[in-house]
């Protein structure tokens, strides 16, 4: 009886989340569409060229504007796009002349592992450093770590990317300047090592700029835990400091940290747009910039929706995790 009731609760919770996701995706794509349609960039001029456009006949221009969709009112275009999207057709990228799903698949596979590694590295190291700093509040190690976090928190990702480029690629010549594979190499010849080497700098940049948030949050939580009554009692029971940190500290700060890191997928995403641009890394972020500047509306919308879906999935997992892992949420308050 009870389990059926809680099952119903979980189902309702999931349903609510999914509806929220759908609404969110609709709003995000509508907003993106609106922004592109009011953008002063004329896709015709950008992609065909002012001069070429001038030398064309009226019929040619009319044909082109039909291709770029500039002849229809925006609302109509949006609705027809949304309709197709629901049927699984994401449209054709105007710039790449390929199905959008194709382009996104290709770019996403480049970006995804870059973002995944950065996400893991920034989360793991940020959590470890935050724990260390929080457990040693006010001591030298805390001051150094906090200073590091505050500095990286105020460092723009693109600036850091440029610095890394200068140091490692230009001066030391240790790592390649950009792209995800060596220039002019056949795709079949590219080795895993090539890919890794090309990914190091973008990953490093993203990891470092994405770390401060989780680090400072973890440090704050850890300080709270160390000042709590239950840690005082643990000390009174003769538990050593390292035991307290591992037995009580991490137990109590891991879940909030994980939640935060899942919710901050969006920041890694945002950072990757800039970082990919600096490193000319052919990922989703770069494709988004190209699509935006080139007026490639189908591609831009496709990327927007996919990114929003990924970000939302992060939040979704965070919510579910809290409900399932934390006993206070899972069991509910039986005793007030």
């Amino acid at each position: 009886m009870k389990s059926r009731r809680s099952e119903g609760k979980i189902l309702r919770f999931l349903l609510k989340q999914i509806i929220r996701m759908a609404v969110l995706l609709f709003l995000v794509s509508a907003a993106a569409f609106f922004l592109v349609s009011v953008s002063p960039i004329d896709p015709l001029k950008v992609n065909v060229g002012q001069v070429a456009l001038g030398s064309m006949s009226q019929e040619q221009i009319a044909k082109l504007s039909e291709y770029w969709g500039t002849n229809l009112p925006p609302a109509e275009r949006f609705l027809s796009w949304a309709g197709d999207f629901l049927k699984g057709d994401m449209g054709t990228s105007l710039l790449y002349r390929q199905p959008v799903s194709h382009v996104i698949g290709m770019k996403l596979s480049n970006s995804l592992w870059l973002m995944a590694v950065s996400w893991l590295v920034s989360g793991g190291i940020g959590f470890a450093l935050g724990t260390l700093a929080g457990a040693n509040k006010g001591k030298a190690v805390d001051k150094v770590i906090s200073a590091y976090a505050l500095i990286t928190a105020s460092t723009p990702a693109f600036w850091l990317a440029l610095v890394f480029l200068m140091v490692f690629a230009v001066w030391l010549k240790m790592l390649p300047i950009g792209l995800s594979v060596p220039i002019g190499m056949e795709a079949a010849e590219v080795t895993l090592k090539d890919r890794v080497v090309h990914g190091i700098l973008p990953c490093l940049t993203l990891s470092i700029t994405g770390m401060s948030n989780i680090l400072l949050h973890t440090r704050g939580k850890m300080i709270q835990v160390m000042e709590s009554d239950y840690v005082l009692f643990a000390r009174a029971r003769g538990e050593s400091k390292s035991r307290i940190v591992f037995r009580h500290g991490i137990r109590n700060i891991l879940l909030p940290a994980l939640t935060l890191q899942l919710a901050s997928v969006s920041e890694i995403f945002g950072g990757s747009v800039l970082v990919e641009q600096v490193f000319s890394y052919p990922g989703l972020g770069q494709a988004a910039v190209t699509a935006g500047l080139g007026g490639d509306i189908p591609l831009l919308l496709g990327i927007t929706v996919i990114s929003a879906a990924i970000v939302f999935t992060g939040n979704f997992i965070a919510n579910v995790l809290y409900g399932v892992v934390d006993p206070r949420m899972r069991k509910g308050r039986k005793v007030a």
Partner: peptide, 28 residues
């Protein structure tokens, strides 16, 4: 402390909120 000299604190806030009572009684 915790062996020959023990403290009995005043309230539930002295227990780790995410650890079961049994584990806390036995101190691990």
């Amino acid at each position: 402390r915790g062996k020959e000299i023990v403290l009995v604190p005043q309230s539930v806030s002295y227990l780790d909120p995410l650890m079961k009572a049994g584990a806390q009684i036995r101190n691990g």
